[in-house]
Amino acid sequence: MESDKKIVWLASYPKSGNTWFRAFITALLNNGEVDINNLATDGIFSSRRLFNEQTDLESNLLYDEEAKQMQGNVFNHICAKAKQRHLFVKIHDAYTYNSDNLPVIPTQNTLCAIYIIRNPLDIAGSLANHKDDTLDDSIDFMNNKQSVFGKQEDEVNTSLQFRQPLLDWSGHVNSWTAKLPFPVMVIRYEDMLADAFETFKQALLFMGIKTDKQQLETAIAASSFEQLKQKETDYGFKERIRNTSFFRSGKAGNWKNELTSQQVSAITSQHQNTMAKYGYI
């Protein structure tokens, strides 16, 4: 039944504007109030806590492949019990398949996905800051087709999140923009910056959420980059994984101040087709 489809995947490669989008949704649902440490969206796909609650298993005792076989059912179950019209679930995993050749991400209860894309040249600096890595390490990570977010050394499972396969940057984008069994809207981070009103308005229309101009403007103002950065300064941000600021510059085109020509080349040479498709070169 169409009404059973509630999950809206808020999907992106890391450091591409996902938190901003979730803050916007939060502001919209909360009449302009945003607590960055308690966003009103419905968790992250890779959450071990949500998994443990639905399965009664201690997920750190599972092999990753076992978890990948069950994560979809966990979210189908959460969706079946949910009272609200939409479940907004953050996800950084690429759209991949488990050992049974089934999508890791559940399709049965998925309404649609918003895929937020950002210029990989800008992601490099932001990711380096987030992971407390060098720019070269971040670029290597973005170029590695085996990259995994949340992977621990020696396959230890003490992280609060499951491993999230990312592929390389192009692989991630292409996995979510291939023909999937549910509608996907691609939003460019740079368009969120350049024309927030129109971009968020189109996203809401796509998700089937009705709002008026005043609500939209209030939500956009409450979730602006400056507001979020100030809240991180004042209250901290639990999604930060290192003692570096999560909200850094937020600008488009900052790569021109950060990357050497060799670093630019390392990214553009590997991701040329996908970057061209989305207007980044």
């Binding site: 639905q54 399965t55 009664d56 298993l57 076992e66 069950m70 059912n73 179950h77």
Partner: peptide
């Protein structure tokens, strides 16, 4: 009934992959 397990006051059934 949850994901892979079911429970009531006197019974518990876990079916783990």
């Amino acid at each position: 009934h949850k994901v892979g397990y079911a429970i009531n006051p006197n019974e518990y059934l876990l079916q783990f992959l």
